[in-house]
Amino acid sequence: MKKDQLLTRRRALLAGAAVLGAAGAAGTARLLTADEPAGSPVRNTAPVAGPPVRRALKPSAYRLRPLTGYGPPRSAPARTVVRHEPFLRISGRGRSMVLTFDDGPDPRYTPDILRTLREYDVRAMFFVCGEMAVDNKDLLSEMADDGHVVGNHTWTHPRLTELSRSGIRSEMERTSEVIEQAYGEPPQWFRAPYGVWNRAAFQLGADLGMEPLAWTVDSLDWTTPGTRTIVNRVEDGAAPGVVVLSHDAGGDRSQSVRALRDYLPALLDSGYHLTVPRRQFA
């Protein structure tokens, strides 16, 4: 009789262990399931072994919004074609233009330019130099939050025709790395300093997934000709598809800052849509 009682108790203990094991397995599956139905009555909040899971950052609303409709979404497989000349204009409907700023970011002038663009809800392109960007990553992050496009303008702003192929690659790669760290993604556009291009620049830019973009209208603001002269050059050159070149670093850019405050609202009042281009993937 005692032997039968012992067997019965043993069976009960084994059955209880099986139930607990099944419950533990169910709890583990619950933790690993990302698409748990809404309104589930029980949520397992037990800590999980290992490092804490980093919460995904919410992308900027501007980064998610298609701005121009050029080409397919950014998630399309990217195979960049090797160009033989840079793009000078953008294609699209209506009176669209692109404002670009080179050589920065510079904490003396770039923040003012960003504030003006934000005031008028306008996106622009910033072709940054790595040696400037590495010490001003917060400004690149601000550009990302506001929906601006950041392009590669080399590390030290050299004439590419005077560098070896390995030298050009180094200038591009180092800058792309800094941009990706601060902006959140690698650059999709490249601009050669001084507008001096060569075959190696096109090939290496394509290897890094970048399209070459030059400009249509040069404000020549780097010569500091006076605020009114810069304004007149931009307004006189305004036309559908135009890409405007200005600078936010590389010298005294206070005239460029003041000129933007004048010509930006004037362009908007004239019916121009200031935007940024979308990549055309091959």
Rank of each mutant, 00 (worst) to 15 (best):
E180D: 15
M172G: 02
T161Q: 10
S170E: 13
R191G: 00
H153P: 01
R169S: 06
E173R: 15
Y183H: 09
L160D: 02
T156L: 10
E171R: 11
H153T: 05
G184K: 13
G195K: 11
R165L: 00
S166W: 14
F190M: 14
S164C: 04
R191E: 03
R191C: 00
E173Y: 13
P158F: 08
S170C: 02
R169W: 07
V178Q: 15
W197K: 11
T154L: 04
V196G: 00
Q181D: 12
E173N: 11
H157L: 04
G167K: 11
Y183E: 06
T156Q: 12
R191D: 01
S164A: 08
H153M: 05
R159H: 12
E171K: 09
L160C: 06
P186F: 07
S166C: 02
T154Y: 07
T161Y: 01
W155V: 04
S166T: 14
F190P: 00
H153N: 05
W197L: 01
A182R: 11
W155T: 11
E185I: 06
R159K: 14
P186N: 11
Y194C: 00
R191I: 01
V178N: 10
P187V: 05
P186R: 15
F190V: 10
S176D: 11
M172E: 02
M172Q: 07
Q181M: 06
S170A: 13
G184C: 04
T175M: 12
Q188E: 13
E162L: 11
M172P: 02
R159T: 01
E162V: 06
W155M: 14
Q181W: 07
T156Y: 08
E180L: 10
A192H: 08
G184V: 04
L163M: 14
P158E: 11
E177N: 14
S176E: 14
Q181T: 14
E177H: 13
R191Q: 03
H157G: 03
P158G: 06
W155P: 00
I168C: 03
R159F: 05
S166A: 14
S170N: 12
S176H: 12
T161L: 01
M172V: 08
R169L: 08
G184N: 06
P158Q: 11
G195M: 05
P158T: 10
G167A: 12
W197Y: 15
V196L: 09
E185G: 02
E185Y: 14
W197N: 03
H157N: 12
W155G: 00
H153E: 01
A192W: 08
